[in-house]
Amino acid sequence: MIIRVRDQFDAYSTNTNKVLEAGIDLKTRLFSEGGDSPYANIIAVNSKRVNDPAIVALVKALKTDKTKKFIKEKYKGAVIPAK
């Protein structure tokens, strides 16, 4: 929600994906976490679905070199693929 009212603040914090969706120039940021940040988006599922073929396929797809390459090319360093 902060993106919609950002002009009312001198500074704010939000996720990179929200900044990109809003078309905000990333060069205007004051701070950005690096690749060594302990914070990352995670996939969380109900324990009953851990072995669900769709979940397993999603996790597998996110870890491929093809996906990592896509993230690097598409987001040009604004988003860092998981290791």
Rank of each mutant, 00 (worst) to 15 (best):
A11T: 14
E33K: 05
S47Y: 10
K48P: 02
D10G: 13
I24Y: 01
T67R: 08
A44E: 12
D65C: 05
I71T: 05
K69F: 15
G34T: 07
V56H: 02
V56T: 07
P81T: 01
N41F: 12
K18Y: 12
V79T: 06
Y39E: 05
E73K: 12
V50Q: 08
N51C: 08
S37F: 05
G35K: 12
Y12H: 02
N51E: 14
T64M: 03
V45C: 04
Q8A: 13
V5C: 14
D65Y: 09
D52A: 03
E21G: 05
F9P: 04
L20C: 08
D7Q: 09
K69G: 13
K27V: 06
Q8N: 09
D52C: 00
I71E: 02
I71Y: 00
Q8H: 11
R4D: 10
F70K: 11
V50E: 08
D65Q: 15
G35R: 10
L30Y: 10
D36T: 05
R6H: 04
P38V: 03
K76T: 06
P81S: 01
R49F: 15
A54T: 13
N51W: 10
K69Q: 15
N15A: 13
S32D: 02
A61E: 13
V45Q: 00
Q8S: 09
V45Y: 01
G77Q: 02
D25M: 03
R29F: 12
K18C: 13
K76F: 06
T14V: 12
K27P: 01
N41Q: 12
N41I: 05
S37I: 04
P38A: 07
V45R: 04
Q8R: 14
K63R: 14
A57K: 11
V5K: 11
V19Q: 13
P81E: 00
L58A: 04
Y39L: 02
D25G: 04
D36C: 06
D36L: 10
I3T: 10
N46C: 10
A22E: 03
K27C: 05
N17G: 09
V45T: 07
E73N: 11
R6T: 02
K74S: 13
I80L: 07
D10T: 09
K48Y: 09
I24D: 06
F70D: 09
D52Q: 01
G35M: 08
V45E: 01
N41K: 11
Y39D: 07
A57Q: 09
S32T: 09
K74C: 13
I2R: 06
I43Y: 02
K48G: 05
L62T: 05
E73M: 03
